[in-house]
């Protein structure tokens, strides 16, 4: 394996990951179907502060693009401020109405003070998910640290606002009413655990959905190439994974919307606990 020309392998394997290495034979063979390459973080502008690597990466680039896209879309769609909305304005209004209705239904009128936060979360996740559907684009939400940070924003808001607004009553959240005294320690323990698992479930759900969806897409798309490369019957056979890839693409668009929706709905429900901690 050491005999294989390093320059050649470097050249071919360069697109896969930054490891022109010992595994290159395998890497070259499976280059086209390495489904993890799309999640690799690539430094665009290296920044190092102290020991910390704060480089501007492809992930950061797509975060910036996401925010820019939301801003541009929302302002462009509402430039005419039409009484009877056009298509783009309708979409912008629908997003607004959707988040407002969800939040008001879940957390009541008092919950509306979190409207900017929930709208930002929803639009960020939605646009990031949809950006991920563009070929060669990086999916910001396919990294656990990003989704976990977003989930922590929600949970810390719930805890912070709950304690600020209700003081110690906030912890009544963990002690449901109408439970027999003997069961209270057990029920409270369960409630605490379920509360602590919220950021994890909230972040892992989004992360895992985006990750798994993109890997599946890549794997099936890879089958198209590997089968097609065989020629003859392989080309015919490659039609099957091709159809699958097309179907999965549609499914992934659905998932992109659905996960943004689920994230928002759960956020609203958790915020309700901050506003009305009584069960």
């Amino acid at each position: 394996m050491g005999d294989s020309p390093p320059v050649g392998s470097d050249h071919v394997g360069g697109g896969v990951h930054r490891a022109p290495n010992g595994c290159e034979d395998r890497a070259v063979a499976s280059e086209k179907v390495d489904p993890l390459h799309q999640f690799a973080i690539v430094k665009i502008l290296p920044i190092k502060v102290g020991g910390l690597d704060l480089s501007f990466t492809n992930s950061a680039l797509f975060m910036v693009l996401t925010v820019a896209a939301i801003t541009l879309f929302a302002t462009w769609a509402t430039t005419s401020r039409a009484l009877v909305p056009g298509r783009a304005q309708s979409v912008a209004e629908m997003l607004y109405e959707f988040v407002a209705t969800t939040l008001r239904n879940a957390a009541g009128q008092e919950g509306m003070k979190f409207f900017p936060l929930v709208f930002s979360l929803f639009s960020f996740v939605l646009f990031a998910n949809l950006f991920g559907m563009v070929p060669y684009f990086f999916t910001v939400t396919s990294h656990i640290i990003v989704t976990f940070a977003l989930a922590m924003v929600v949970i810390l808001t719930v805890v912070g606002y709950g304690i600020w607004r209700h003081g110690l009553h906030f912890f009544g959240l963990f002690v449901p009413h109408g439970v027999p005294m003997a069961l209270i320690p057990l029920v409270t323990a369960i409630e605490v655990i379920s509360f602590l698992s919220r950021p994890i479930s909230l972040s892992v759900r989004l992360f895992a959905n985006m990750l798994a969806g993109h890997i599946t897409l890549k794997v099936f798309a890879g089958f198209v190439f590997s089968l097609g490369a065989l020629g003859g019957i392989g080309v015919v056979g490659s039609l099957l994974p091709l159809a699958m890839t097309i179907a999965l693409t549609a499914l992934e668009f659905l998932v992109a919307f659905l996960q943004a929706y689920v994230f928002t709905v759960l956020t609203c429900m958790y915020l309700n606990d901050a506003v009305h901690p009584g069960h």
Binding site: F56, T57, V67, I70, T75, T78, H143
Partner: peptide
């Protein structure tokens, strides 16, 4: 670290734009 930093920067910017302009 870098993802958290840039997420913080971009998300705070988004929050500001959303609450000051979009909404």
């Amino acid at each position: 670290a870098s993802q958290l930093l840039w997420l913080a920067i971009t998300f705070v910017a988004l929050l500001w734009v959303v609450s000051k302009v979009i909404l």
